[in-house]
């Protein structure tokens, strides 16, 4: 799915303060004035958001639109579909939610780590929690299938598999990105992951976390 892959080469340490966009006053006329000092300027001022950060935000906007599409299908289906039989939330979903929230917490700890050992430790924990969530998700599907609740069963179960499945694919990409950064943190030869790459991965991860909560609310509390 769109952009879950590991962030590529990241800029050197020195230019990371430039994350905050300046006051985005639109530029001047089409004449020959020299715009300067504002975000619209284009020049070497360090007021523009980090490219990877911006790219990630755009990717998230796009992913959100996809889920808006799914959600509108869900809401329409729930409102009009006579075959709709609401299924109960599998209890294990809540344990899984705690695992995912935990991974966000540990990623935050990694991001704030001051020492390399701390970073390594928390990155590894995050990776393992992410993988645990995916495994848990797989297990939930197996459990449901054993109970006779399949993808094609009824509209609600279709949506459950669909939404958790698409979320899972996105999360798999996130785990891959985290694993890459963690491997870099452990290997002695390579540079340690830079703050920028950590930030952008964290943004994605926290977003997937929030998306998960949203999906649970939609699937089991939206009436």
């Amino acid at each position: 799915m769109p952009v879950a892959v590991a962030p590529p080469e990241v800029k050197p340490e020195t230019e990371r303060e430039d994350r905050v966009p300046g006051p985005g006053r639109p530029g001047g006329g089409s004449g020959s004035d020299t715009g300067s000092g504002r975000w619209g300027d284009g020049g070497g001022r360090r007021l523009r958001p980090d490219s990877y950060q911006l790219g990630m935000w755009l990717a998230l906007a796009s992913i959100s639109m996809m889920f808006v599409g799914f959600s509108s299908a869900y809401i329409l289906g729930q409102g009009t579909n006579s075959q709709w039989r609401a299924m109960a939330a599998p209890p294990f979903v809540w344990i899984n939610t705690v695992i995912l929230l935990g991974s966000s917490l540990s990623l935050e700890l990694a991001r704030r780590a001051s020492a390399a050992t701390e970073l390594k430790r928390w990155m590894t924990v995050t990776c393992l929690l992410g993988a645990a969530f995916l495994f848990g998700q797989f297990w939930i599907w197996r459990m449901l299938a054993d109970q006779g609740i399949y993808l094609s069963g009824n509209p609600h179960s279709s949506f459950f598999y669909l939404l958790t499945g698409v979320h899972g694919v996105h999360l798999l990409g996130g785990v891959a990105g985290l694993a890459y950064l963690t491997a870099r943190a452990w290997s002695s030869a390579a540079r340690i992951p830079t703050r920028a790459s950590l930030n952008v991965t964290a943004l994605y991860w926290h977003f997937m976390d929030g998306l998960w909560i949203y999906l649970l609310v939609l699937l089991f509390y939206w009436r």
């Binding site: 530029g27 300067s36 619209g40 300027d41 284009g42 020049g43 490219s51 911006l54």
Partner: peptide, 15 residues
């Protein structure tokens, strides 16, 4: 991203 971040010096949005 390219339009927002990669403009050269003096290339304001309205230019």
């Amino acid at each position: 991203t390219t339009v927002l971040n990669m403009r050269t010096k003096g290339m304001s949005l309205m230019k």
